[in-house]
Design a protein around this nucleic acid. Structure first.
Length: 699
DNA sequence: AAAATTGACATTTTT
DNA sequence: TGTCAATTTT
């Protein structure tokens, strides 16, 4: 028997043992949230709940698996079949089981955003939209608008009005693309990420018996990271749980950082409304960080209108003060981070040190330095493994082997063959669909490579859908193409394919493997593979993780907060929460870096930047400040009348508008400006503020 | 019709 | 920096 009293604090114990009825756990950063879920799983098992009746929804499947194995270790035996994973993964499995009910009698494929973009590209050329119009929105922009409007459940028109004002004249065109995109998906039996959620909702609300089935199976539900669920996800949780109401959701409104994807902090606030009488438990004791770090993070919290009041405290009262370091530029920032790393490395192994940033490209200068000094590092966030061309090629070929090939994979796979492009691929797909074998045979007769591909498919069908065998054969077929197409960095790409092979070996069903490659791209794979490597990560990808030493770089306006957020107070709040999440990852050491100027790609020059407003907000007794001297050394900051930072000369937003205007002679530029914040004067140009918030420059 | 070349552009965050 | 679309060459 497990001694719960001994192992948990009173709040945790309450969350673990309150198993009947809805519970909302407000879990501050580092408050033992995972531990609580793990013990609850164990507790349920000890109380005799069958594992099949439990559902654990988390942010990644890796997180779910980790919790399950920790719970198993606690109970002392295998837990068996608890369903665990992401909402999307759960929905996929459910839809797959009931595909027929929704009318997908021949099954369906899940597509990633690249596939969606391909469809949109096709639609645009068919509708002849934006031909010759340089400022017509990009396909990926269109896609993200469509997806955002669905996730936030706001009409496209309203969304564009609010989030993409500069595209308002294209609203109608984007709407046409959206409608065509929906029809095309339907026609090709393809579901995108959002479809998985919405179709599941439809399945459950329109089919009583399916709903009853699901409810009878999943009787104990736990949802982690509830602050990052969107409206449909909350409704899904409600649908599944609302008969017995044995649901526990865990989250922290202060850590909601996926608003851009439609996550709604409102969910966590409305939980008591969705489940009347919900029991609320607060976990506020922090087991991760030292008190000086918590003092700083509490100070960040103080500046937002956090809805659930909380103040974290720690028993680790001793600790070093967080540092605020001001390098002269982002280049010297990279050098100074390097020297900090070397210092910290005497005390911590590399993998216990992390550098965090807002966007993937912010780490480029640092990566250059790391490579120069050959410091091994592992980067999280940014480009996805499965978005790389060679991976997509192999996955498309693998999909062809899956029985009923979807059009997109077919097109991609056949496009590899010399002399075959979109037109020919389309013609052949038609022939295939109509069962016109003669045409295919004819083509194979005069096209050696096509015949080879066909033979490959025939031999693959003998593997009975064994992922490992299929993928290895596909890779050996693909080898020559890889050499021809991507000769430059062959070894790296070959390594990637090897990884893919290993991943496939962990599956026994081909279509589950393929769906997972879309739903959970294995970017974290290298994490366990590389033992002692420095961690570089976007703040978003750092969610839920912790390190003894954490450095956060580029804490300047335009980067954190991102330029996009400057206009909208609620987006500014999300940026602030982002900083909060980043800082609360640190156990012992926290370093904040504020470069005085950063390299601007557009102009090619270094431009002065002002420090992030979130840094200005902090009380200065919460950190130790260091400045770079002209010699490149650090010394403690001296009080100076100017407040010690580079005066803001000109907003880079306005500056880049000015440059573009000057260089390209555009007649008129309209762009978003923070109200009253920047007064800009350019000789020879008239400036107007329209709608209060928009800057117009004209000759 | 496909392949190669040029030219322009935009950079958040992710299931 | 790499990507994407338009243009030219094969």
């Amino acid at each position: 028997m497990i001694d719960y009293q001994q192992s948990l604090n009173p709040a945790q114990l309450e969350a673990v043992t309150f198993t009947h009825g809805p519970v909302l756990v407000i879990a501050g950063a580092g408050s033992g949230k995972t531990r609580t879920i793990v013990f609850r799983l164990a507790y349920l098992v000890e109380k005799g709940v069958v594992p099949e009746n439990m559902l654990l929804l988390t942010f990644t499947r890796k997180a779910a698996n980790e919790m399950l194995s920790r719970a198993a270790a606690l109970v002392g035996r295998e837990l068996g079949s608890v369903s665990g994973g992401t909402f999307h993964g759960f929905c996929f499995l459910l839809l797959r089981k009931f595909a027929g009910v929704l009318g997908y009698n021949n099954g369906f494929q899940v597509m990633d955003s690249g596939d969606s973009e391909d469809i949109i590209r096709g639609i645009r050329s068919e509708l002849r939209l934006g031909k010759g119009d340089r400022s017509f929105p990009r396909n990926r922009t269109i896609l993200s608008l469509i997806s955002k409007s669905r996730n936030k459940e706001v009409s496209l028109e309203k969304l564009i009005e609010k989030d993409a004002f500069h595209l308002r004249e294209y609203t109608e065109d984007i709407d046409r693309v959206k409608n065509a995109y929906f029809m095309e998906k339907q026609r090709l039996s393809l579901l995108d990420y959002d479809d998985l959620l919405f179709f599941t909702e439809r399945l459950l609300s329109e089919n009583r018996e399916v709903l009853e089935f699901v409810r009878s199976v999943y009787r104990y539900i736990m949802v982690d990271e509830y602050q990052d669920t969107n409206l449909v996800q909350a409704r899904l949780a409600g649908l599944i749980a609302s008969r017995e109401g044995n649901i526990m959701v865990v989250g922290d409104d202060a850590q909601s950082i996926y608003g851009f994807r439609g996550a709604d902090v409102g969910n966590i606030l409305d939980f008591p409304g969705l489940f009347p009488g919900a029991h609320i438990v607060r976990l506020e004791e922090n087991y991760r960080s030292t008190q000086p770090i918590l003092d700083l993070t509490n100070n960040i919290l103080a500046h937002m209108d956090a809805k659930f009041e909380k103040k974290l405290y720690s028993s680790r009262t001793e600790g070093i003060m967080p540092e605020l370091i001001r390098p002269a530029s982002d280049m010297s920032q990279a050098k100074m981070v390097m020297s900090r790393i070397i210092e910290l490395n005497t005390e911590y192994p590399l993998h216990e040190i992390a550098v965090l940033f807002r966007a993937g490209y912010h780490s480029y200068p640092l990566e250059v330095e790391l490579n120069k000094a050959s410091v091994p590092y592992q980067k999280f966030g940014g480009i996805k493994f499965s978005e790389a061309a060679h991976i997509k090629d192999v996955l498309s070929l693998t999909r062809l082997a899956g029985g009923s090939p979807d059009f997109l994979s077919w097109k991609r796979a056949l496009g590899l063959l010399p002399g075959v492009g979109p037109k020919t691929a389309e013609k052949l797909f038609k022939a295939y669909e109509l069962g016109d074998h003669q045409q295919l045979i004819n083509f194979a007769g005069k096209h050696k490579e096509f015949a080879e591909l066909r033979d490959l498919m025939t031999s693959l069908s003998e593997f009975g859908g064994n992922p490992s065998l299929v993928v290895s054969s596909v890779i050996s077929f693909y080898g020559p193409y890889l050499e021809k197409q991507h000769a430059e960095d062959l070894p790296r790409r070959l390594g990637g394919l090897e990884q893919l092979e290993q991943i496939a070996a962990g599956y026994d069903e081909l279509d589950i493997f393929l769906a997972d490659m879309v739903l959970e791209p294995p970017d974290a794979l290298g994490y366990s593979a590389r033992e002692d490597a420095l961690v570089l990560s976007t703040i978003h990808s750092a969610k839920g993780l912790e390190w003894p030493a954490v450095m956060i770089i580029d804490l300047v306006e335009d980067r954190l907060p991102s330029r996009h957020a400057l206009l909208d107070p609620s987006e500014m709040d999300e940026e602030r929460r982002l900083l909060y999440v980043a800082c609360t990852r640190a156990r012992d050491y926290l370093g904040l870096f504020v470069p005085c100027c950063v390299h601007h790609r557009a102009s090619g020059f270094h431009q002065p930047v002002s420090q992030s407003p979130f840094i200005s907000e902090l009380s200065s007794n919460l950190f130790k400040e260091l400045r770079e001297t002209t010699l490149g050394r650090l010394k403690p900051r001296k009080e100076s009348p100017s407040g010690g930072h580079v005066p803001h000369q000109r907003s880079s937003v306005a500056a880049s508008a000015y440059c573009r205007h000057k260089l390209f002679g555009r007649g008129k530029i309209i762009m978003a400006m923070p109200p009253n914040k920047y007064k800009v004067n350019f000789p020879g140009f008239g400036l107007k503020i329209i709608n209060g918030d928009y800057l117009e420059i004209e000759e």
